[in-house]
Amino acid sequence: MVSNMSHAFPTEEVSPVTLNDHWSRLARLILLASMAAVGSVGNVFMISAVMIEDYLRKRGNTFIVNVGLADLLVSGLVIPASAVVILAGLKDNLTVCRFQWFIAVWCFLVTVLSLAAVAWENYFRLCYSVDVYQKLTKRKITFLLLGIWAACGCISGMQFYSDLSFDYCTRNDLGLIPYQATVSVIFVFVPLSIALFCYVRTGYQVRRFRSRPNFKAPVTFNWDYALTQTNMYSFVIFLVFWVPFGVVLAIDNVNKVSGKVFYNLAWLAISKSCINSILYGVLNRHFRGAYINLFQYCCCKTTVSFSRRQRPEGVRPSGDVRVHIIPGYNMYCSPQRANEGGRSKRFTDRCASTRANGREVYEL
């Protein structure tokens, strides 16, 4: 359904769905497709890195995965929807716009609460004992994450029920400031303030620890602090991308802002979801190493062929089977797997592990 949406400044020809009409259709399509591709692949790598990297596989890092999942929904649903509208030759589509705004607000609120949880978890991991940190159980994390997604989904959906909130697509101001102010304070300002306090407190405590003459930090402590610094940069990047749009959105309730400025800043804020995973790969060595392993696993595998021909014992097949896999994830050639079920020593010997170019190569 195509709707002629009433903009406050129609002469500027700015669309909340298809960007600026002064740009060529091909340029807009290439830009949106590139953002969707880079953002989606990067966020998948970011989520997978926590699963495959030994150091990152901690229950507290689930909150980082939650941020990556929210960014993945934006880069995989919000941005491609605009590309589809451009491909269809449409200018404005009210249904698509409201779908995008619903997903964007939902993921924005989830990201804010997750960033606060990341900062809180980093503070307890670095500044408190292991016994205190162990109280953060998997069950508590699961219920907390489910509660975050459910609460944020309800808040995002309620803005369309009885027109409680500002209409992003048509920019019709209903003047119901109390609802918007309440949501902004409880779900945005308070969590961001908690995150900022936790990071400042963490940096202060770590400097105190390191100033002690008898303090010798273990390597895991340095790794945790390096990851915390990366999370700090991610928090700052989030503020840099979203605060300008938040300020313009607040001003727009009092004095109408140019549609060109309003929607360009909105798309700038949305584009944050496409670069957050890149930030982790650049600043953190564990994420960077996991990205390299994932790239090698996805792009450097050789063809695996299976042969049913009978051959004499001790004679290798005509084509060697070499599989490049992520270290520690060979389910067939690991010693534990080989010893299961009373396997013979001959099978274990034939399942030899070598290293080539810094990667695990297993020959079957």
Rank of each mutant, 00 (worst) to 15 (best):
T111F: 00
T111H: 00
T111Y: 00
V112D: 00
V112A: 01
L113D: 07
S114V: 04
S114C: 06
S114A: 11
L115M: 07
A119D: 10
A119I: 10
E121V: 13
C127T: 13
Y128K: 13
S129R: 09
V130P: 08
D131Y: 05
Q134C: 09
K135D: 12
T137V: 08
K138A: 11
K138C: 09
L144T: 14
W149K: 02
A151D: 06
F160P: 06
F160D: 05
D163C: 03
S165K: 02
D167F: 00
Y168H: 13
C169H: 00
T170E: 05
R171C: 03
L174T: 05
L174V: 04
L176P: 02
Y179N: 01
Q180L: 08
T182L: 03
S184L: 06
I186L: 04
F189I: 11
V190L: 01
V190Q: 00
L192A: 02
S193F: 01
I194M: 02
I194N: 00
A195N: 03
Y199G: 08
T202D: 10
T202H: 07
Q205F: 10
V206M: 13
R207N: 11
F209T: 07
R210M: 15
R210T: 15
S211V: 11
P213M: 05
P213L: 08
K216D: 13
A217Y: 05
N222Y: 15
W223P: 11
W223F: 14
D224S: 11
A226T: 15
S234V: 13
F235E: 12
V236C: 14
I237P: 08
L239F: 09
W242H: 14
V243Y: 08
F245W: 14
V248A: 14
V248R: 09
D252H: 12
